[in-house]
Design a protein around this nucleic acid. Structure first.
Lengths: 343, 343
DNA sequence: ATGAAAGCGCTAACAG
DNA sequence: CTGTTAGCGCTTTCAT
């Protein structure tokens, strides 16, 4: 029942194999394999090449990647395990960056979402390993310290947006300190000297890093660091709104916010008092959450987390395109996005 | 007490095959295959089963999914081509829903992001086909009409968040009309009768659907539809802010906004006039964009787009778990998320 | 310049 | 109960 070639491009057709093409073209499978893969180093007459190509097109032959991978022993898969796509728009950007970069090099992403469930995570990694992935990107939706899941050790891996101190896993993370510095410098550049910093209450690399950056910038500008000016608040609109009360008591002219949501809350607080951004209070955020930052009034000057680049760089390191020795933590710049709120 | 093989869980190890296990356990590959797959319908002595299992564990055997797929002729892959992960947090939710549902049934997602590039799209689909995907989900980041890419016809497919009139492709989309109705009804329930609708300027199923829903709700409540009350604006903060000018001239007490961003802009406009939401003006949004809706002051009552469910349902239809005849367009409910702005 | 043949790791009859 | 064997679709020497 070798009745094929009839229904090309028309519904799920009976798969056409190398064999079928070979028979149709009157050559061996080897020959077909050569022309299908465009192997020019193999010497084939132009006549044959053409005849085979015709057969391929006519039959609508499509190579079976599974078989190819099996015989070559290595797939074009890269696994990406993410702990949360749900919670945030950020994770999407990591996937996006990884996807683009992987694709560029002929790889496909196997995506798994674990929602931080260890069991699911383990299964996902196993699944990827069984599919002979070239390697695995392990990513978290917010920058944090982790310990590498044991199953991961059987694979080439790189950590994205997280790091594992004491392990030799390579990692790519945002440069929080530089981000904090950039934000503060921007305010300094506008002449501000009393600059408050609304930090988050959550212990994290973001919290400590951005604070360190803030202090660095102050120091470099010869401004004395005043601990009273850094206040902690929940990292959301409510936190920013509430923090204003403390801020108004300390005659600051500018505020660096832990993130855009805090900045958004602060805008509200300022507005309620009949004050204006940036004339009465200059504000810089962090995250560059498009929906918020670009459309606040006035648009928010903020610092961008390089999620897309995190994903892309993770892939590059995994593929050996970017150098990174075992245990290396690659830090990616957080660029300042200048809009109108920094006065 | 566990005496293990050479290098389990220690770096990318030399792959252990069925053969290796068979030799180690002193049985045939078939036997190993049986116990590895937990085939209980095959009669094997408990002794053998145990011995083999031990060998499997000791050697750290991991089945090669590629080989398995090759021989069974069908993979556990499902392709998901998305036209944009970049632009919006929404697409992420579609992926997430699809991912979860696929996973639940033992399938893995092959994700490709095309950024609406036809060339990339074509390549992505080819790639998926070559990997013998069980089917393909074709999704768009905003609800719209499309025409099915030709390459897709060679696969089982379902359209997600888009539809192709006149084709027999099955599709899953949000029920825009019901969403518009729910939003309006909520306002009606609060006693409002003069309700403006700030619609988008973009022609789309969202635009026409939500308008239809708005009119339906009005009609059902016995309120005369007044064309003057629906005004078009760019679907973002600026649009909402600007629309207020027209609104204030028509003594409305409530506004249904095309989306949350418009609502956010409208909040600003209201606040600038020293007015209050919802007492001076009740507002309902659409989209339920977490960052905005949940944290506006007061929190925004809005309608949720079922992105997660769109993805999940797409998978279910693809897998034949949910019935859907050729050409069927499945509409998913957009639930109202009641907060405090609808007064 | 082209074909034959040996597998890749695994499953599934079919024998014993 | 368990082993043998024939492929799945493809790549790749090695002959011819």
């Amino acid at each position: 029942m070798e009745r094929l070639g009839s229904d090309l491009e028309t519904g799920p057709s009976a798969p056409v194999t190398l064999h079928d093409v070979a028979k149709a073209a009157g050559v061996s499978v080897a020959t077909v394999s050569y022309v299908a893969n465009g192997r020019m180093n193999v010497r084939l007459s132009d006549a044959t090449r053409l005849r085979v190509q015709r057969a391929i097109d006519d039959l609508g032959y499509r190579p079976n990647a599974l078989a190819k991978n099996l015989v070559t022993g290595t797939s074009r898969f890269i696994g990406l395990v993410a702990d949360g796509v749900a919670t945030t728009p950020f994770a999407g950007q990591i996937i996006h960056g990884a996807q683009d970069e992987a694709w560029k090099h002929g790889f496909v992403l196997l995506v798994a979402n674990t929602e931080s469930d260890t069991q699911v995570e383990r299964e996902a990694i196993d699944m990827m390993l069984e599919h002979q992935v070239r390697g695995i990107l392990y990513s978290t939706w917010y920058h944090r310290e982790i310990s590498v899941p044991p199953a991961l050790h059987s694979a080439e891996m790189v950590l994205v947006n997280c790091y594992a101190p004491g392990s030799d896993a390579r990692a790519v993370v945002p440069d929080e300190a530089q981000g904090g510095r950039s934000a503060t410098e921007q305010l300094l550049r506008q002449g501000h000297r009393r600059i408050a910093f609304i930090n988050t209450t959550w212990e994290s690399p973001a919290r400590s890093g951005r604070l360190a950056g803030y202090r660095d910038a102050l120091k470099a500008a010869g401004v004395q660091f005043d601990p009273a000016l850094v206040i902690d608040a929940e990292p959301n609109q409510e936190g920013g709104y509430g923090a204003y009360e403390k801020i108004q008591r300390m005659d600051v002219t500018a505020v660096f916010c832990h993130n855009d949501r805090v900045a958004m809350g602060l805008y509200d607080a300022v507005r309620v008092r009949g004050l204006k951004v940036p004339t009465d209070l200059a504000i810089v955020g962090f995250d560059n959450q498009e929906v918020i930052a670009a459309h606040l009034r006035p648009p928010l000057t903020t610092v961008q987390l390089p999620h897309y680049e995190l994903g892309a760089t993770g892939i590059r390191i995994l593929l050996g395109l970017d150098a990174a020795p075992p245990g290396a933590i690659t830090k990616l710049a957080c660029p300042l996005v200048s809009r109108e709120s920094a006065g």
